[in-house]
C-alpha cells in the first residue's frame, strides 16, 4: 500500500492536537486525500477529522478539555477588550501582531478580572505566556519574535464557536 506524501508528518501533528494550516505544504496532501484520512483516523483511533478550507484538526471526544476552555476565555476577553478599545477585533485577529505587553495591559484592566483571577492559565503574565506558547505548539498562533505573536486561521474555530453560541441563544429567545 502506498501512503500519501507527508503521511507521517500529518498523522503525528494531528495526533499531537496540532492544527494543520492551508499555507503549510502537507495541508494539500491532507486535502487531496480527505476521504482516506477521514476513514484512517476513524478506524484507527475513532477520531473525527475536521477539514476546512483554511485549517484541519482532529476532534476530541473529551469536551471538558481545559486547554480549549482556557484558549476560548483568552480569545473572548481579548475580543471584548479590543472592541471596547474601539479597535476592529476581527481585523486584529486576522492580520495584527500582538505584543505580550499589550495583552497584559488588556487583561490587567479588564472588567472580567474576577474570571481572570480564578483561572490559573490567565492569572499571571507568565501563565499567559505559557498558554500562548501552548497555542503556538498547536498552530493557533505564530510567533516571529519572542515578545509578540499573531493568530493563525485556526482562531476561526473559536470565533465560529462564539457565533454559534450567539445564534443558539438568540433562537431560544425567539422561541
Amino acid at each position: 500500500m502506498v501512503y500519501p506524501s507527508n503521511h507521517r508528518q500529518i498523522v503525528e501533528e494531528l495526533m499531537g492536537g496540532k492544527f494543520i494550516l492551508s499555507n503549510e505544504s502537507h495541508f494539500n496532501a491532507l486535502k487531496e486525500n480527505e476521504a482516506f484520512y477521514t476513514e484512517f483516523f476513524k478506524i484507527s483511533f475513532d477520531l473525527d477529522l475536521n477539514l476546512k478550507t483554511e485549517y484541519a484538526f482532529l476532534l476530541s471526544k473529551d469536551t471538558q478539555e481545559n486547554f480549549s476552555r482556557d484558549v476560548s476565555i483568552f480569545i473572548a476577553i481579548l475580543c471584548y477588550e479590543l472592541d471596547r478599545d474601539g479597535r476592529n477585533f476581527m481585523e486584529a485577529l486576522d492580520f495584527n501582531e500582538f505584543t505580550f505587553e499589550e495583552v497584559d495591559r488588556y487583561f490587567d484592566n479588564s472588567s472580567f478580572i474576577d474570571l481572570i483571577e480564578s483561572n490559573k492559565s490567565l492569572r499571571e503574565p507568565d501563565a499567559r505566556r505559557t498558554l500562548i506558547n501552548g497555542m503556538q505548539r498547536r498552530n493557533i498562533v505564530s510567533k516571529n519574535f519572542d515578545d509578540r505573536f499573531a493568530f493563525t486561521q485556526a482562531h476561526k474555530v473559536f470565533v465560529d464557536f462564539a457565533k454559534e453560541l450567539a445564534l443558539k441563544r438568540m433562537a431560544v429567545e425567539t422561541e
Binding site: 494531528l14 495526533m15 492536537g17 477520531l47 484538526f57 482532529l58 476532534l59 476530541s60 471526544k61 473529551d62 469536551t63 471538558q64 478539555e65 486547554f67 480549549s68 476552555r69 484558549v71 476560548s72 476565555i73 480569545i75 473572548a76 476577553i77 475580543c79 471584548y80 472592541d83 477585533f89 476581527m90 472580567f112 474570571l115 498547536r138 474555530v157 473559536f158 470565533v159 464557536f161 462564539a162 457565533k163 454559534e164 453560541l165 450567539a166 445564534l167 441563544r169 438568540m170
Partner: peptide
C-alpha cells in the same frame, strides 16, 4: 461574535468548548 463571547464568559466552565484533541 461578541454576543456569543459575552454569553460564554457569563459561565465559561459550564459550556462545552471546541473539542480539541489533547
Amino acid at each position: 461574535i461578541l454576543t456569543g463571547w459575552i454569553e460564554f464568559l457569563r459561565n465559561p466552565y459550564k459550556m462545552d468548548t471546541p473539542p480539541l484533541l489533547k
